[in-house]
Design a binder for these strands. Structure first.
Lengths: 187, 187
DNA sequence: ATTCCCCTGAGACAATTTGTCGCATGGCTA
DNA sequence: TAGCCATGCGACAAATTGTCTCAGGGGAAT
């Protein structure tokens, strides 16, 4: 595939903030993005990220949804507050429609499910709403996937409280814990 | 639990546009929403919906993603162009993260996967970004119940062919057989 | 009529997933 | 500090699934 370039940018080397608690992943991605012309900085927690942004807010950001016990969503919100123009791509291994909706509403530019490669992230940064012809998938979600999406939705509607969600869903907390620990069903 | 009310609205009966090519679903939903105080109008295609909006744009809208061979996404875009204030909930039996992201970027207020009930839609209209405090989840379906509803839908969409449905749902035919043999109850 | 092909119901048994309990930790509040 | 609740996680039994297999029942093409 062809590389998507950011040559059009006024800046020579746009700044990019990568926030993920997985240091290995962070490193790999940092390298790939540096090669694509970004000036990369990494952070592994919301606190780290914010202090790094004190001096200057990054123009681009890649934020993981699940940061240890914090939610990347709050970081998205804060980054957007600091600078409306920041383009943020949310990344996660536990993708769900519920969190995707939240992320976009909070101002994320795009939302991608891991695994992703650097080119996909580049494309996500470039994307503007409506410019893609989305073919509507003809096949419904698998039951496993449906369950995952539903659980994520109820969970987010209940402030991520596992115990409450388990009670509402009429399932055992232990079971919910185990389901949440797994990756969403491959589609 | 307690019903979510829209009493706060200036209007006595806010107008609601429902767009779905499934006339049966449309009818059922229209009835449910009327009971909840909306002045409901139904449309079964983008063209219908737009001509209905010529005189006055609805304050609320429920749009199905898959309208025959059209995409509900373009309708979302148009409705938002006509009136930025319209609150739109996107609905679909073919949910995906990609379309959810697109819908929100185009201005939809929320995005829900079928099956849903009227109370969930009410909650979606109420919901504002990031704010999960007023989570007044009515009485969501239990996961078991959700699965049952979903299976029934896919099954009927496939002419009650158990084998085909099992493949689509990515589950074993034997398992589907067993689930179908059980009572639909379990709330 | 016979052969394919696909659907269906159902038994049996192993592989997984859940239901339950229990326990330790940590935050919040009276 | 005690009481309450949420959370993570180990352990083991109970229940559900995954697999395989067999025995029909149409329908369509030969």
């Amino acid at each position: 595939m062809n590389q998507i370039s950011l040559e059009d940018c006024a800046e020579e080397n746009p700044s990019l903030l990568i926030v993920d608690d997985d240091t290995v992943f962070c490193g790999v991605l940092a390298k790939a993005m540096t090669k694509r012309g970004f000036q990369v900085i990494c952070a592994h927690s919301i606190g780290d990220a914010l202090s790094l942004c004190e001096s200057a807010v990054a123009e681009y950001a890649i934020v993981d949804l699940k940061l240890s016990n914090e939610s990347g969503l709050v970081l998205v919100e804060k980054l957007k507050t600091l600078d409306q123009g920041t383009r943020i791509v949310m990344l996660t291994g536990y993708a769900s429609i519920a969190t995707a909706v939240e992320a976009i509403k909070l101002g994320a530019t795009h939302y991608l499910a891991k695994p992703v490669d650097a080119d996909e992230i580049m494309a996500a940064f470039e994307r503007t709403s409506g410019d893609s012809e989305l073919s509507i998938s003809a096949n419904p979600l698998s039951v496993g996937r449906l369950e995952w999406e539903y659980i994520q939705r109820i969970l987010s509607e209940n402030d991520n409280n596992v115990s409450v969600t388990a009670r509402i869903l009429n399932m055992h907390r232990r079971t919910l814990q185990r389901k949440l620990a797994k990756r969403p069903v491959r589609e």
